[in-house]
Design a protein around this nucleic acid. Structure first.
Lengths: 210, 210
DNA sequence: TGATTTTCTTGAAGTAGATTAAGTTTTTTG
DNA sequence: CAAAAAACTTAATCTACTTCAAGAAAATCA
């Protein structure tokens, strides 16, 4: 009876905006594996929801990456600062993407990357210890993370292929055609660095002067 | 008693070269998760061992990738052919590395890549259906594959970082310093394409004429 | 072993895209 | 709303590489 009352309480909470946002993660997991409602509740209990203002750094180069972030709303990027002091974007993440430095997270050593919010964002974060506990409680989640990583690795492979085979102009048009909405969301200079050319060159491509 | 006899048989088999080679995979898995001897036997029963001659293609662009390969001995690479008809190496794999096109394997659609042996090699291969069956028999292997992918993705991220931040000459010296033995094993023109510059330029770097 | 194929080298000429620097437009902030 | 900061544009100059072409060396094959 006590349990039922507790459950009712949590059903009320379900109606809140907060729960709606969290359910994005559950929906995402359910695309890969089955999860009943009590398992879903358990999963969420291991995460913290954070509201992050644009430009906030979630990870700095040289620090240990101790969170994995799942984006509920907004946009994050990972980037490095090169020898000339310019930022170069390695990865963008939007709604339903995971962003982290897996190597630093896994091995608990210094990260090579920065992770930053480039829009006001809502994320779910989980620490290494919390994730390990969750995975030992619910081992079938390993499969979900495996599938997520498979997708990420596949994307990284294609990225390298594009960097190798396309000219700067081709990469720009290809990205534009593939993600027309996303292009509106990020500053051009960040996209230029992601596509590995200078912001000035991007201006020229856009102006059709190439 | 029948079971004991069967077990003895398999112990004898253990002594063979074939079993020794296979045990490389088991040893690799055991770095990530626990596996008792009967589980290990079961894992191996899902794999085929193949001897592959240098230059043999294991996957061609446009075909569906229906195997994952674990390298027991030798060296594989994945590559593409660019618009000018030149091969560009995306990845090398040596002993204890997995090589496959995860996207094509997972989604059963046309691959963008070639996979080729660049030395006479011994590999263990597993088909998608066999892998799925194995994973449902032994779900804890999901964790092993997750950790493998985490490593691969981390390596791909670092690769992109190096492509972004280093000059051709720096990339060459960095690779040389990191993998001095491996450099001896592959033709220079393949390494040049992997590092994203021309074979002619590599000659000049090596001759110190840069 | 000699013949063939594959890989590596060298130098001259060309180019995709970087750099620099200054000005303009847009966005954010108090 | 004005002021400051962030983002974008333009044009001139420069350079890290590519491309081309031809020959030399090394590896493989019959």
């Amino acid at each position: 009876m006590i349990w039922v009352a507790f459950f009712m309480l949590s059903v009320f909470k379900i109606d809140s905006y907060l729960y709606f946002m969290n359910s994005i993660l559950i929906a995402h997991i359910r695309k890969s594996i089955d999860l009943n409602d009590s398992e879903a509740e358990m999963v969420l209990s291991y995460f913290d929801q954070q509201t992050i203002r644009k430009k906030t750094l979630l990870l700095e180069e040289g620090h240990i990456c101790n969170k994995q972030y799942f984006i509920l709303k907004g946009c994050l990027r990972s980037y490095i600062i090169n020898a000339k002091g310019n930022e170069q974007t390695l990865q963008f993440g939007i709604e339903s993407w995971w962003v982290t430095d897996y190597m630093s997270f896994q091995n608990q050593n210094a990260s090579h990357f920065f992770i930053q919010a480039i829009e006001n964002s809502e994320v779910l974060s989980i620490s290494k210890t919390a994730l390990e506990e969750l995975l030992s409680q619910l081992p079938k989640l390993e499969r979900y993370f495996k599938l997520t990583l498979q997708k990420s690795f596949g994307a990284a492979q294609m990225r390298i292929k594009y960097l190798f085979t396309m000219t700067a102009e081709e990469r720009y048009h290809h990205f534009n055609d593939s993600f027309p909405d996303f292009v509106q969301r990020v500053p051009q200079y960040m996209l230029a660095s992601y596509l590995d050319f200078s912001p000035e060159f991007m201006s020229k491509i856009r102006a059709g002067k190439i």
